[in-house]
Nucleic acid binder design. Structure first.
Length: 828
RNA sequence: GCGAGAGUGGUGGAAUUGGUAGACACGCAAGAUUUAGGAUCUUGUGCCGCAAGGUGUGGGGGUUCGAGUCCCCCUUCUCGCACCA
């Protein structure tokens, strides 16, 4: 028999499967569908080991489900818009389009070398006009429904990348750009936004979703729902002027000794007394000049300035000074707060710094007898549960949560406040001042204002001849043919929007695009179109199992849920969650346990590994490294173990041709038992994405086979080999196909076989190892029949000589028997 | 600070409901085979000890006949959020 040479068989089978449509999705199969989805890759130009780590186990699961009898849809595509293409364009003087399509071509080849059962016929690339015309179409529909809107607003802007950034693209305390690590600044621009906040509450509802707790809590945290009260404060002496504050602790309102407005607050100018103008102006311009780094990293010390104005506490008529301070953020809540220093850490620090009073208005029940003096507080009282209101007029003695409700009711009744739910989540800012993205399909006319591009003019195409210079502005701004157009309303001169969409738009609906790729290709679109084949989308979606990296927990995974809900409300989908089940794989790290990067020199090249070991070994090793969700550090030596394993599987299968009718019943039994135990373990493990232990179980079966070599040629031996190949088929599709064709060519592809089943009785041991402990310490192990009763077990254990010696002279006080497992003898 | 998760041999990692700690692999050691190297095979391998035995899952305490697993305290690490009112 020939040697196992992976590269000779792998490309052969890849080609064979594709040419014979062996793994294609068949709508008419009658089998239950299973939509398996792995996050679509960005075509960076080289398939990284991280892609393998994400996709190989995913493919294994898809193949496993196929063998289990499901009709599996496992598509792939490319998230092909984005900044790297533009940077490459500027650097190499090449159009981002050419750069991107060259990369896609290269990556297609690399992806094919993985041997995944990808549905290549359903492939999409988001930079294809036939793809992004639908992104534009969705935008127009959302615009009609007021789900998209334009707003002049301060935005995070990266001077280096010359673009606005969504909040989640700004990282860390230093507030740096996620791409280039440069500090982000604030800039006022007219921006397009999508009303994701409309779905804030629904996005918090994870009912019926089998998602990792981690992602759920990250999303909850991100959405940041908080229940409170919003109420109005009038400015003393300027009764027409008022501002609103949001608080989650209305029960502490009697402890308000000042108010704080964010420096950007609209009212600041109007209420500032002339004698305070100078200092306020200085403070504001200082705050503006400070970039975000300074503003947040300044030791969190609270500073601010007094405006000279006073506000009226609507509960008791008290006058409180109005300050401005940059610890209050314009974009959260109302951009203004009530300062209750007795019961809030930040307010406390602020009050102590500026000599403001810090009265106590809620205490614990224990403190009721001796209410602390506010002036002597060393720190604020942050108690909420079971807190009791004091120094609060008619509300004295009211206990949380009644205290919240009674004050809220009072405010509502008196008409100056009401209950309010606040979210940290902001509307999704989708404008990007970049060229390589989906053009936002609107035009601006001098006389008619903003006008949507008519549906039948979609797509608004990106020019192929834009010039890339490092000017910092979108090349679309200088491209006359693109820029200049006519108004769809009046026919007069108009200019196109030159901003493009955030690429998270593309990835918010790609899994629906897969179902009917390039649907209505070349056709003129109308408003009432369906963006996909309705029967197909309803049959295949939602996605049954989604897998991908945890890094997308609050961005992509939130946006794609939002998009599904929005599209459902547009009547385009009949479900509201894109996927019920999500699994996040961990990250693959370098040998040094650090993130892989070129600068560290710890990057592992999958192409080299494939060349050396073959695809099957690389796939299997990645799955063997550890639990998939935990991630793993690359260990260059470990892969040898998998290479050896497949070699030995190959060698073992040579014995298939041999035959014998001279096998001991003992060997036969051992083999059969191991086989069924292995099938059971592998089936359960694969179901739960525990690839590492599944592979370990097959390795154990291999070890048993080697130890029972006298069984070679027997029927059960052959059965073990066959089923071992079936179990390995999803893990190592090529070698198993090759060997399967050697031993059972008449049955067709190994990947079209039924997943092996197991029999509990066959898997059961008939002898078990009984552990005998004396006073909790292991003293002996005995082989006893599996079905032994409690009494029998106890008798056997007590009779064991070793045990007896430990019990000499001792009195037995208690005997604990766990049938089938252990006996623990407790002696005096 | 808040939230989530994790600390098990030289290494990656296994351990149903609390019931044999270290499966499976890597590495290492000895041996076999080989002209040599490589490859392959066999055996061994938590730590201390010649052995009997003792000891052992980040540290400390507790519950229990019995704890890697449950409870309390501490500690270290990773990730996410962070002046959110």
């Amino acid at each position: 028999m020939q040697e196992y040479v992976p590269k000779e068989i792998e490309s052969k089978w890849q080609q064979y499967w594709e040419e014979h449509n062996l793994l294609d999705f068949d709508f008419d199969s009658g089998n239950q569908k299973f939509y398996m989805l792995t996050m679509l890759p960005y075509p960076s130009g080289d398939l990284h080991i991280g892609h393998w780590y994400a996709m190989a186990p995913s493919d294994c699961y898809a193949r496993f489900m196929k063998m289990k009898g499901f009709e599996v849809f496992f598509p792939i595509g490319f998230d092909a818009f984005g900044l790297p293409a533009e940077n490459a364009a500027i650097k190499n003087n090449i159009h981002p389009k050419s750069w991107t399509y060259e990369n896609i071509k290269r990556m297609q080849k690399q992806l094919r070398s993985m041997g995944n059962m990808f549905a290549w016929k359903n492939e999409v690339a988001s930079c294809d006009p036939e793809y992004y015309k639908w992104s534009q179409w969705f935008f127009l529909r959302m615009l009609e429904e007021d789900m998209a809107y334009r707003e002049y607003a301060p935005v995070d802007y990266c001077n280096n990348c010359q673009t606005t950034l969504a909040r989640e693209q700004v990282w860390g305390e230093e507030r740096v750009c996620e791409r280039c690590d440069n500090p982000v600044v604030k800039k006022d621009l007219n921006q397009w936004k999508l009303r994701i906040t409309k779905y804030a509450d629904e996005l918090l509802d994870f009912d019926g979703l089998d998602w990792p707790e981690r992602v759920r809590s990250m999303q909850e945290n991100w959405i940041g729902r908080s229940e409170g009260v919003e109420f109005e404060l009038k400015i003393d002496g300027l009764k027409a002027l008022s501002f609103r504050v949001f608080t989650t602790r209305p029960d502490t309102v009697f402890g308000m000794t000042f108010c704080v407005l964010a420096p950007e607050h609209k009212l600041v100018d109007q209420i500032t007394k002339s004698e305070n103008k100078e200092i306020v102006k200085t403070y504001i311009s200082a705050a503006q000049r400070k970039d975000e780094i300074e503003r947040t990293s300044e030791g969190k010390s609270k500073d601010g300035v007094f405006t000279g104005a006073y506000a009226v506490n609507p509960m008791n008529g008290d006058l409180v000074p109005v300050w401005i301070a940059d610890y209050v953020i314009e974009s959260y809540g109302t951009g203004a707060i009530m300062g209750v220093p007795g019961h809030d850490e930040r307010d406390f620090n602020f009050a102590r710094k500026y000599g403001l009073k810090t009265p106590v208005v809620v205490v614990s029940k224990e403190q009721l007898g001796l209410i602390p003096d506010g002036d002597e507080l060393a720190e604020p009282i942050l108690l909420k549960e079971d807190s009791v209101m004091v120094n609060s007029a008619e509300f004295d003695g009211v206990v949380w949560p009644d205290s919240f409700n009674q004050v809220a009711d009072h405010m509502q009744k008196e008409g100056f406040g009401e209950r309010q739910v606040n979210f940290r989540l902001h509307d999704w800012l989708i404008s990007r001042q970049r060229m390589w993205g989906t053009p936002i399909p609107v035009v601006y006319c001098d006389s008619c204002g903003m006008q949507p591009v008519p549906y039948n003019e979609l797509p608004v195409l990106l020019p192929d001849d834009a010039e890339f210079k490092p000017t910092g502005e979108s090349p679309l701004k200088y491209h006359k043919e693109f820029l200049k157009t006519s108004c769809p309303e009046c026919g007069g001169d108009a200019v196109r929007e030159t901003d493009t969409m955030d690429t998270f738009i593309c990835s918010s609906w790609y899994y629906y695009a897969y179902v009917s790729p390039y649907w209505k290709k070349g056709q003129t679109l109308v408003r009432d179109d369906n963006p996909w084949e309705v029967e197909k989308i309803n049959h295949l979606c939602p996605v049954d199992q989604y897998t991908g990296g945890i890094e997308h927990a609050t961005m992509h995974l939130l946006y794609f849920r939002f998009f599904t809900k929005a599209l459902a409300d547009l009547g385009l989908l009949n479900f509201r969650e894109p996927t019920k089940r999500l699994f996040n794989q961990g990250m693959i790290l370098g040998e040094d346990h650090e993130k892989m990067s070129k600068s560290r020199g710890n990057v592992v090249n999958p192409d080299m590994l494939v060349k050396q070991y073959g695809t099957d070994t690389v796939r299997a090793y990645l799955m063997f490294l550890g639990p998939w969700d935990a991630g793993a550090a690359w260990n260059p030596q470990g892969i040898e173990g998998l290479a050896r394993f497949f070699k030995s599987v190959w060698t073992l299968c040579n014995s298939y041709e041999k035959s014998t009718d001279n096998v001991s019943p003992d060997t036969e039994k051992k083999l059969r038992k191991s086989l069924h135990q292995t099938i059971k373990k592998v089936t359960i493990d694969l179901q739960n994405f525990r690839f590492n232990t599944a592979i370990a179980a097959v390795m154990s079966l291999r070890n048993v086979l080697k130890a029972q070599a006298d069984g070679i040629g027997s029927d059960v031996w052959k059965e073990c080999l066959e089923k071992m190949l079936l179990m390995l088929a999803p893990i190592a599709p090529h070698i198993t196909e090759e060997l399967w064709q050697k031993i059972k060519p008449e049955s067709g592809s190994v990947h079209r076989q039924q997943w092996p089943t197991f029999d509990e009785d066959m898997a059961a041991d008939d002898l078990i190892t009984l552990v005998v402990q004396v006073n909790g310490k292991l003293r002996d192990r005995l082989e006893i029949p599996a079905g032994s009763s409690k009494d029998e077990t106890e008798k056997i254990a007590l009779a064991a000589p070793k045990v007896k010696s430990y019990l000499k002279g001792e009195q037995i006080r208690k005997v604990i028997v766990v049938p089938g497992r252990l006996v623990n003898i407790v002696s005096s």
